[in-house]
Amino acid sequence: MSTRTPRKTKGSSPPKQQTAHRTDLFGAMLRIRRFEERCVELYSAARIRGFMHLCIGEEAVAVGVNAALAEDDAVVSTYREHGHALARGVPADAVMAEMFGKVTGCSRGRGGSMHLFDAGRRFYGGNAIVGGGLPLAAGLALADRMNGRHRVTCCFFGDGAFAEGEFHETANLAALWGLPMLFVCENNLYAMGTALDRAQAQTDLAMRAASYGMVAWAVDGMDVLAVEDAARRAVEGIHTGTGPHFLEMRTYRFRAHSMYDPDRYRDKGEIERWKERDPVELLARRLREQAGLTDKALAGLEDRVRAEIDAAVESAEQAPEEPVADLLRYVTSPAEEAS
């Protein structure tokens, strides 16, 4: 259920085509939501282990941005990357198997929740280091530019990464060298448990990014249509040679930072107020009111999504673990590299 599209198209879409596309966007967000909800159940039953960070509430960013990217563009993600991977087209069964630590996972079960990777889809992984993906994305973009490839590298990161040196170093070099990079800051107002206004004197992150000479603006990250429109405009700008672009996606995670987080730093009323702008429900209402999509049609889509996730769980449970004899494969040492 990938929402990836060919390179930018001009003109408005016919009503039927527009409705079909928006239904696809809705289905992609619903798929991420139900996938992660199932992961919560599995984690609580100790069938998924380790760290796990959920993007419930932030689905519009993953789906809207990926809808604006082409298949030969690159995506670099964070440790909260299940949604990014699914929206990019990584199969649900490969992601679920990775959550289970099985050899059929997209990283052969070696990465788990925070290190999803699929080179064939140019999804260059989640990264457990805050801001760690930014310099990697700059390297990918530089390689494309030096080789004359007409591509964009999109790098997702959170508002917490904005405080890291990697962001400022990467932003400076990207602007200085005119790299074809799309910076997507998922500003969910909290870096782990620290509120943005307790850590940053200037909370307008788009304005601060613009100080590096990049085109930058803020976007309603709870509205998938606004996200897609902004991402398409940014990609177009990059391809016309105006350098890297920065999008501050103002979004919100409905759940705690991670499954280990007691979430005592936020007012419960604040969470409920943001839930009133649930991106999945927002688009569902639009489809009902503006496109005449029936509850029966939406229920059918829900059934298909649940069936896909059920199949992914069953496949992951039946998949083999990596043999002990293979545990040292893909692991090198300086002595081995020298020999």
Rank of each mutant, 00 (worst) to 15 (best):
139 G>N: 03
5 T>Q: 15
210 A>M: 05
160 G>A: 14
220 D>S: 06
209 A>N: 03
135 P>E: 04
20 A>L: 12
126 G>I: 04
224 V>Q: 08
46 A>Q: 14
47 R>S: 07
333 S>P: 04
256 A>M: 12
202 Q>N: 15
47 R>W: 02
42 L>G: 09
197 D>A: 11
178 G>F: 10
299 A>F: 01
136 L>K: 03
174 A>S: 14
182 L>H: 02
301 L>N: 06
155 C>M: 12
241 G>V: 10
118 D>I: 03
147 N>L: 12
36 E>R: 09
13 S>K: 14
300 G>F: 12
198 R>M: 11
237 G>I: 03
95 V>M: 02
204 D>V: 05
305 V>I: 08
243 G>T: 10
302 E>K: 08
112 G>P: 05
335 A>Y: 08
16 K>D: 15
181 M>T: 12
319 A>R: 07
61 V>N: 06
239 H>E: 15
195 A>W: 12
286 R>F: 06
86 L>P: 08
42 L>D: 09
202 Q>H: 14
294 T>C: 13
292 G>L: 04
316 A>T: 05
233 R>N: 14
79 Y>C: 03
60 A>I: 08
278 D>S: 07
65 V>T: 09
297 A>K: 02
305 V>M: 04
282 L>W: 08
217 W>R: 12
49 R>N: 12
141 A>S: 01
32 I>L: 09
58 E>S: 10
51 F>P: 05
191 A>P: 08
82 H>D: 01
53 H>A: 13
